[in-house]
Design a protein around this nucleic acid. Structure first.
Lengths: 159, 159
DNA sequence: GTCTCGTTACTCGGATATCTGGTGTCCGAGTTTCGAAGG
DNA sequence: CCTTCGAAACTCGGACACCAGATATCCGAGTAACGAGAC
């Protein structure tokens, strides 16, 4: 069970967008961390479909956060990239074979599924409890001038 | 991010082994839920390597739990099948590109990695807090006679 | 009758194919800007 | 000088290859049990 690296890219990019506070083309966002621009674009499209960022086409366009960083949870970003389906998917094997249960029990989920779901809910709750603003604030504790550095770089860099 | 179905198979099989309480060949365990025996065997090998079950070769052999169900957590089973690596793997993109941080910060993990790790720890803690015995007990609340049924089936079935 | 040995049947174990989904790339769609030409 | 039109540059958007890991299968390795034969 491995999470796609698109999640890492998306999170860092969201923090960067929070620092920059305006529309930034994907080429610039990719250059910030030496990422393949076309593939990062794919991830940002997913964020756009989820309403986390908005896209503006044409010159001067790019991506920017759709709402304030305090209103974007890590759960929002993760489910936008990875999908909202549960990591553990019950295939109901309890209904097959010699050890199958009585169909009367099919209404409630099986014990295994329930246990796994409980753990996954704890994970989701933790992700929903942290926002992009929190991560940004934590990063600024060690790198206070990052916002200014990025802003300077964006305005003064030529392509 | 999808968890392999081997986890579901392994968990159900562990509960079944807890009910049966003796060595059971993989063919029988697979028949309990109409699973491909050879592939279930692969999963059980992983459990054996992790010390969760022990294998006995030859006639009358099979797999059985290596210790009491109360001592087997869901975390043990999941990490045996899926591996112990973190789902979110930080590739340290903060060190690359125009937006790279000062190398002095490389000692401590980046804020994004930290946040994701926190959530994943909550998930792991929840999994480690539940045992095979708990799941078994919960299942018995709805199907009290399952242990007896499985035991009868195993002793009276002809191949 | 009992011991021994060989054969048989049974079961795990790891090496080997197949396939789905994540990874990576490309070109077309849409929009703004700028400049030139006409009035 | 102002307006209008067109071309070009820029950026997102989705469609198209590629590859690693999960899925599935098979045959060989190891072991216990059983029976036949000798003592």
């Amino acid at each position: 069970m491995r999470m796609g690296e698109g999640v890492e890219w998306a999170l860092h990019t969201c923090v960067n967008l929070a620092w920059l506070g305006r529309a930034v083309p994907v080429a610039k966002l990719a250059a910030l961390h030496d990422l393949p621009a076309a593939y990062l674009n794919k991830q940002l499209q997913a964020l756009a479909r989820a309403g986390i960022v908005t896209s503006v086409r044409g010159p001067g366009g790019g991506f920017q956060l759709a709402r304030r960083p305090e209103k974007i949870t890590l759960m929002d970003v993760v489910s936008a990239i990875e999908g909202s389906a549960n990591a553990f998917q019950c295939t109901e094997i309890r209904r097959q074979g010699a050890g199958r249960e009585d169909p009367a029990n099919y209404r409630k989920p099986c014990s295994v599924s329930q246990a796994m779901r409980t753990a996954e809910l704890a994970w989701r709750r933790e992700l929903a409890g942290q926002t992009v603003a929190d991560v940004k604030a934590d990063a600024e504790r060690t790198i206070p001038d990052m916002a200014a550095r990025l802003d300077f770089w964006l305005t003064n860099t030529r392509d």
